[in-house]
């Protein structure tokens, strides 16, 4: 069962054994995997998601495309090229607040949000946010009005979710870069507002 992680150690051993074999047989040079992972992570940052959000705030036509087909829209900005995953962007409004989770493991759009925070992978967040999201969000310091509906998106297949937060008031004159600087990783997950 994917919900139980008692076989993590077994998988780690198998992965290490496979790496060793690939190196021994000359398929991979030592460190090649680390380099590939480093290169991937170097391109993965919440600054990417923040840029996407800022663009959506200043460009209504980009925003429509982003909500209709997240993958294609972020590819316009050079993100997620060649990805097999589908990105679905969910928009916070006056009446609906969205928050993302992966109850089975810790899936999340890495390239747009950067490496996931440890709380996102914790048993506590994963089990509680689907059950009592209002209480969990309050613990993050996000008190939502009683009338705001909460939608929790549990990424159980190949779609990855990102939240489009609400644009803060009094930012009409802000340039796009300044708007992007305000958007945090937690806002892209839905555990904070901007």
């Amino acid at each position: 069962m994917s919900g139980d992680h008692h076989d993590d150690a077994l998988i780690s051993r198998r992965v290490r054994r496979l790496e060793t074999l690939l190196e021994e047989r000359g398929v991979l040079s030592g460190g090649a995997l680390d380099e590939a992972i480093d290169a991937f992570l170097a391109q993965s940052s919440p600054a990417n998601g923040a840029r996407v959000v800022a663009r959506a705030w200043v460009d209504p036509s980009f925003k429509s495309r982003l909500l209709a087909d997240g993958t294609a829209a972020v590819q316009e900005l050079g993100y997620m090229e060649g990805s097999y995953q589908r990105l679905r962007v969910v928009e916070n409004t006056e009446s609906v607040h969205n928050v993302i989770v992966c109850t089975l493991c810790s899936c999340y759009p890495l390239r747009l949000l950067g490496p996931s925070p440890s709380w996102y992978k914790s048993e506590s967040y994963r089990s509680r946010v689907v059950r009592e999201p209002r209480a969990v969000l309050a613990e993050f310091g996000l008190a939502l009005p009683a009338g705001t509906e909460i939608a929790v998106w549990d990424s159980s297949a190949e779609t990855r979710y990102m939240v489009l937060p609400r644009r803060p008031a009094d930012t009409e004159s802000f340039p796009e870069e300044e708007l992007a600087a305000r958007v945090t990783r937690n806002a892209l997950i839905g555990t904070a507002a901007v």
């Binding site: 689907v130 059950r131 009592e132 999201p133 509906e149 939608a151 929790v152 998106w153 297949a157």
Partner: peptide, 15 residues
């Protein structure tokens, strides 16, 4: 329908 209480929704990706 999931928990017997609560006023939120949960969306899952299901085959």
């Amino acid at each position: 329908d999931l928990w017997g209480e609560g006023d939120h929704h949960v969306v899952l990706d299901l085959w």
